[in-house]
Design a protein around this nucleic acid. Sequence first.
DNA 1: GAAACGATTATCT
DNA 2: GATAATCGTTTCA
Length: 204
Amino acid sequence: MSGPGAASPLPAEFYARPADAVARSLLGCVLVAVTSADRTSGRIVETEAYLGPHDPASHAAERIGRTARNQSMYGPPGIAYIYRSYGVHWCLNAVTGHHDYPAAVLIRALEPREGIEVMRRRRIVDGMPLPDRALCSGPGRLTAALAITRALDGHPLDRPPLWIEAGEALADADVVCGPRIGITRAAEWPLRYRQRASPWVSRG
DNA sequence: GAAACGATTATCT
DNA sequence: GATAATCGTTTCA
């Protein structure tokens, strides 16, 4: 898509808010990734907020502090924080809040929009394609589908090759907020946001 | 130095 | 429902 009326990337100011507010606002926005050969994108249907040093589940919790891995979380709002999960998967976050304050929003699931055939090709394992439902329904799955790796850690999310555009905002009635997933500390904090009844979310 | 532990997923029972 | 894959960070000696 291009020309008049095309959605423009969200500015850094969009992210200069508490992580839970950004996590809610990102639902319905569109994540776009381009390579020299392909363009892939999807609507964000599930996010999770990691609030700051006082959030014990955060990679930058008080007890951990600044490390080589989480340095992007201390950068300016609107950049990517990408880390390796379980030594196997890449996970994408949008850094929020103000500079030097570590907070971020984990992008957990997308509804595929552009390049779904490219996503299918990227996820073929042993000749067996994944069902479309599984292409982007999880933080590790969507990075594989969009070819997002550590190389983009710290990348500003308002320009190629990876950016987020405003989408159609979701009404509060279409948003479900509940406990976070896959963590042991403060998992019960209601910081996971997802589109109600979307078949593209990671669980439920 | 050594060992345990994940903001997960695919595969097997 | 259980578990292997797989590696950087953190923790402990």
